[in-house]
Design a protein around this nucleic acid. Sequence first.
DNA 1: TATGAATGAGTTTTCATTCAT
DNA 2: AATGAATGAAAACTCATTCAT
Lengths: 205, 205, 205, 205
Amino acid sequence: MSKMENNTYTDKELAIFNGVIDLIKRGANIYLVTVSEIAKASGVGKGTIYEYFRTKEEVISKAILYNMKREVEHAIERVEQKNNFKDRYYEALEIIVENFDNKFSTINLLLSTGNFNELYEYMIDEKHLIAAYTSRIESIIDRLLLMGYEEGIITIEESQYYKRMVIISSIAGFINYINNRERYLDIDTQKAMDLCYKMVIKALK
Amino acid sequence: MSKMENNTYTDKELAIFNGVIDLIKRGANIYLVTVSEIAKASGVGKGTIYEYFRTKEEVISKAILYNMKREVEHAIERVEQKNNFKDRYYEALEIIVENFDNKFSTINLLLSTGNFNELYEYMIDEKHLIAAYTSRIESIIDRLLLMGYEEGIITIEESQYYKRMVIISSIAGFINYINNRERYLDIDTQKAMDLCYKMVIKALK
Amino acid sequence: MSKMENNTYTDKELAIFNGVIDLIKRGANIYLVTVSEIAKASGVGKGTIYEYFRTKEEVISKAILYNMKREVEHAIERVEQKNNFKDRYYEALEIIVENFDNKFSTINLLLSTGNFNELYEYMIDEKHLIAAYTSRIESIIDRLLLMGYEEGIITIEESQYYKRMVIISSIAGFINYINNRERYLDIDTQKAMDLCYKMVIKALK
Amino acid sequence: MSKMENNTYTDKELAIFNGVIDLIKRGANIYLVTVSEIAKASGVGKGTIYEYFRTKEEVISKAILYNMKREVEHAIERVEQKNNFKDRYYEALEIIVENFDNKFSTINLLLSTGNFNELYEYMIDEKHLIAAYTSRIESIIDRLLLMGYEEGIITIEESQYYKRMVIISSIAGFINYINNRERYLDIDTQKAMDLCYKMVIKALK
DNA sequence: TATGAATGAGTTTTCATTCAT
DNA sequence: AATGAATGAAAACTCATTCAT
């Protein structure tokens, strides 16, 4: 039972994580999904799951955290490839669009309303991880803001909290658009992005 | 036993709804709560629940919708008692603060990320109700904006979508603050509200 | 609670019996029928049933016995109106035809395979009643046989048991026809009766 | 654990069937028996039953059909070992005697009054099976009759329906004797058989 | 090491019976 | 006397977890 080395995972563990993530992306409810379903989706036996994890709760929680880590890292990598304020901001919105069909998007979980707190109790044990992602995102936002300042887009004299809040609010507003697109037939995605950006500019000027 | 309290539910149904809402407000997970727990929290026998509802799913879904209706109506009533743009906006934030401990806050559900869609399948049948609340909130926002316009606070020439988005984004940003208060020790609630308002003013000027 | 006088029943008791009989004739299974269904079918409240009977088992058992008594008496009355062997025998078959749609026919219960024994345990207490009906039927058969003897139709020198057995067997055979009519498309009811009668005559000659 | 015993059922399914059959033979009512009782009688866990069958109804219905198949096949085999009309007929009566304590005898179900129709709804799906047994029995009767004809015991010129009816009626009459033995103290089983046979001979002469 | 058949604890659901009105 | 709302004991059924293979 060679559990894992540091923070890498065995093939079986990864298969199981991917099974869970798959199920959830296909609409399964993390509270109602069964171990049998996970086993089938992962292509492993039910017993095997218990070779690698102690309980169902642990499987699901760790799978979610694994996915979160991956998504956040991927998002950061993409955002950092953009070299100016506007491109970087739009890239963030772009990522949100791409993740829309994924009800289980980490962005949703991290940025918005704290519904995340409702997740498995178990995760409380892993709260430091979530906090780590949250502060990584914060530093990304800080660098974005610095870029905007250096480019002369941001000129306002206000606390860092205010500036971060503007970015976070605008992104939350954009997520709200994405989640309710069917109600805004006259606003296409490009338009919605442009208006988010406009708000940011005005609020930070 | 006066059969109907209002024109909709019997006393027993209301007792059961309140039992469910109580449980959830005390931290129960809507997917993991049991009928026995609901019965105990409602002060009725387990069998009684099945006299009034066909399944556990129906009980919980209807309780949530009932609560949503009540909360939305209460919030609207409070907001409408304020007669100027600023007071009305702050009143909305105030309501959010008061609802914070309520993991199950309708504001969270309605305004933000659409995690609401993940709720019990059953609710799909009641989607029109949720849509109705959403558009009531929208018209409240529209009236708020009109007020701001009449008071000369809002002067921007932009689409209604933009203006609504500013309000919604700022509220979502405020919810984010509330949900992460422990991370913003240097910002008290009053300050957070003021900064939200500042963003709104700047974005709508 | 004026229970009953001797062997007459109150209106309520009769209403309940008729409710039960109705349900069963409409295809309900006596083991699966619920007290609520009986109450609805009887047009009385569920509580009322427990004013007149101690348990569900008692209600159903007594209703069945009541029906049995009525059916047997009615059958005997009809049979005795016929004044010769052949008419009397045919009248018995006629009654069976008329009762066919009634899965719950007493004739089935009494004459045939003893499936009756499977009925409610409770009935064991009332076994004397069933025995009484059985021996009334036996004496009807005896009088029928006497008639046939006097008419010169029956001439065989054999035990009374044999003669009764011939009658009972032929009726059981006819019931088998009735219950499987769809398998005997070339045999109409009249023909089946005639062949039963033929067998009886030959066996008793 | 050799998966399939014959080409139809797993070992576990057979264990469950035998548990059900056992219970019924020991006097349990097929409508009132519980899954817990079946589990205990089968020597398997309650959950195991639901691994192999979808509902309690399915378990019981399939167990009954399984038993019916076995009993019919066994009876036919025994009957066919006899090489003349009389022995074959008596062998059939013998089988009935042996099955008497079995309230759940297939012979009762198939030959007689059609009470069988009252069994679980589920069986309607399997009606073709029951029809198949019924017609197998019919062809056994036909071969018996042919034997009697060839031996010169049967000489009557009548329809096949009549001849079959005589056999079926006599067997039904014998079942009636068996089920009411306590009322016929002066007739022992041998005597009852002989009289049945006598009736058959006379009716088919 | 990997498995899935087996299981029973714990869930949802039913319904005979009670009892306040 | 008549009722049906309320109930909990007992039923059907589910599924996380175990363990023999």
